[in-house]
């Protein structure tokens, strides 16, 4: 019984992080129909940013890392994605892959490929026991931070003019421009929000693992990519739900597979995704299969 509760705690924690990753990716996808592979690198750069700032008081670290990653995200759009806006889906995909590869290897060039350790929020790892279940403060912070970020994004999207414009652009980019929505602005806002979400994931990951490496962003981001696809492209709620579900499923598999098979957790989760796509090729909340970007 306790191991079930333990799994639930772990699943909530990991599911939350996955949901954050998925939302960041889905926001950009919604407005540009672009799956940003470089979101993995945004997460990674946030972690390296934390490394650089190690020792500073944590509110400063948090603010700086969030701002840093948001800025990189907006810059990335301006330099690499704007020139190919409106290009074919294949070009967009390869471009985002190229940006991702570029950033990863840039970091390798300057920082080397080896794993580095750092301490951030170590005190959060102190566990306390509730009914024999081991919960750390970090687990609580993860869930709270996720809810806070989701709430903030929801508030921006529904209560601000820019947010409404972003939602309109996600639904029908061309029409949004025809009522006066400024394309560059909403896209920049989407990337900035996406960067902030990536930074949150960075901070949580760093607090949890205490390490950074150039390829660390791939695992959380991959869940985000898959979630955006199975959530029904363009649906933010679908992506968040999908991300959370995939995170939970991953933890459940990890906990219930026999020891010899735990390294293959990803394979099992992936098999489930494939099975899901066979039954519902349009994803959770339905998709508009072909979307032309204005």
């Amino acid at each position: 019984m306790t191991s079930v509760l333990q799994t639930i705690v772990d699943a909530l924690s990991f599911g939350s992080m996955s949901a954050l990753a998925a939302l960041g990716i889905a926001l950009v996808f919604g407005v540009m129909r672009l799956i940003n592979f470089a979101h993995a690198e945004l997460i990674m750069l946030g972690a390296y940013g934390t490394l650089v700032l190690a020792g500073a008081p944590w509110p400063i670290v948090v603010i700086c890392v969030v701002a840093f990653v948001a800025l990189i995200a907006v810059g990335m759009e301006r330099v690499a994605f704007r020139p190919v806006r409106g290009a074919s889906m294949a070009t967009l995909l390869v471009t985002s892959f190229a940006v991702s590869y570029f950033l990863q290897n840039l970091v390798i060039l300057f920082e080397g490929a080896q794993v580095k350790t750092l301490s951030f929020g170590v005190s959060l790892l102190d566990p306390f026991r509730v009914i024999d279940v081991r919960i750390t403060w970090l687990d609580l912070v993860t869930v709270v931070a996720t809810l806070a970020m989701l709430g903030a994004v929801a508030a921006i999207l529904t209560r601000t003019r820019t947010g409404v414009q972003l939602r309109a652009a996600t639904e029908n980019f061309r029409m949004a421009r025809m009522v006066g929505v400024r394309a560059n602005r909403v896209i920049a806002v989407a990337f900035a929000m996406s960067g902030a979400l990536a930074a949150t994931v960075s901070l949580l990951l760093v607090a949890q693992n205490g390490t950074v490496s150039p390829a660390m962003g791939l695992q959380p981001a991959l869940i985000g990519f898959v979630a955006t696809v199975i959530g029904g492209m363009g649906s933010l709620i679908g992506a968040v739900t999908g991300g959370f579900a995939l995170g939970v499923i991953t933890v459940v598999f990890q906990a219930s597979l026999p020891v010899g098979l735990t390294p293959y957790t990803d394979a099992f989760v992936f098999a489930i995704v494939i099975g899901f796509l066979v039954l519902r090729p349009n994803g959770l909340f339905g998709a508009r299969l072909t979307e032309e970007r204005a």
């Binding site: 003019r161 409404v164 414009q165 939602r167 309109a168 639904e171 029908n172 029409m175 949004a176 025809m178 009522v179 006066g180 929505v181």
Partner: peptide
């Protein structure tokens, strides 16, 4: 101001939000 073919209102936004968007500029 253009009312395009097929109306193209934002179906997933509320009526009020649609009107608010008309005032974007």
């Amino acid at each position: 101001s253009v009312v395009p073919e097929g109306r193209q209102i934002f179906a997933r936004l509320t009526v009020a939000e649609n009107l608010e968007l008309g005032a974007t500029i």
